[in-house]
Design a protein around this nucleic acid. Sequence first.
DNA 1: TATGTTGTTACCAAGTTGGTTACAACTATC
DNA 2: GATAGTTGTAACCAACTTGGTAACAACATA
Lengths: 151, 151
Amino acid sequence: MQLSSRFPVAVQLLIIIAWTPDKYKVTSEVLALSVNTNPALIRRILGSLKTAGLVSVTAGTGGAKLARAAQAITLLDVYRAVELTSDDMLFGLHATPNSHCPIGKNINQVLQPHLDQARRALEDSLQQVTIQQLVSEFPPFDSGYAVLVSK
Amino acid sequence: MQLSSRFPVAVQLLIIIAWTPDKYKVTSEVLALSVNTNPALIRRILGSLKTAGLVSVTAGTGGAKLARAAQAITLLDVYRAVELTSDDMLFGLHATPNSHCPIGKNINQVLQPHLDQARRALEDSLQQVTIQQLVSEFPPFDSGYAVLVSK
DNA sequence: TATGTTGTTACCAAGTTGGTTACAACTATC
DNA sequence: GATAGTTGTAACCAACTTGGTAACAACATA
């Protein structure tokens, strides 16, 4: 089983936004080109990032900016923004174990703390990496790339 | 997004098998009662556990036993047995980023190590917990429970 | 007003999941 | 050998999620 690809895509969006100089306009069209999908899908993900307070998108005229510094956005922030639909559960427990069985009766209570711990380990790791860090792994923006975006 | 409930169910199965004295026969019927589902689903999961070498099921006469000691089975073993369908990927990368974009071209290579690290953190945590440990959190098997299983 | 962009809705095909039925194959016992 | 109980597996289903797509109103700038 696999988590959705929304998370990696969201990271890519943030990297591009952070990587592009402020004077250029990063539209969902441009982002869609890089991810190789269509703008509506980008806007959908961008919506989650906006709700989470990671980016600000100016409606109408277009263009996305980071809502806070790239070194203040971790992979965990992104993960939470786009993947956490319901609550904090990474592993879904079986809904209704048999309450008459001595094991089934308490299985969820016994299991939960350990699953929480595993989830926390995952999140701690994601928290160690910032968007700034990832951006620094790419070549700097070059004016030649300006064809990809609009002023 | 959420991982399937197969994993927690598989853990529950192993706990019951480990918890039940050897002289009792733990059939998929009994396990289904505890999980509150039907035997076929149990056999499906039990099949994965068998393939992974965690349990041995005697076909025909019925009954599941642990294939190795309960303290030698970790949650990671179970996780891998039932959740890893394809390869080691927890996060699915976007299949085809645009190779003409300086970001899209390398995004997967840059992201992969960090996602791997996060996955490893998750797995390390799961590896700390054994089935034996979980069994010890339940009351011991009582002859009164024998109605749940058959000799 | 005209243009370009966003936000959102609606819909679709594909894949996954848990659930269920059915049945052949198997093993022990009578 | 026949019987009974069980496993292994296939087939199918409804519900859900996902990525993809089209469409269009709302918006902001020129």
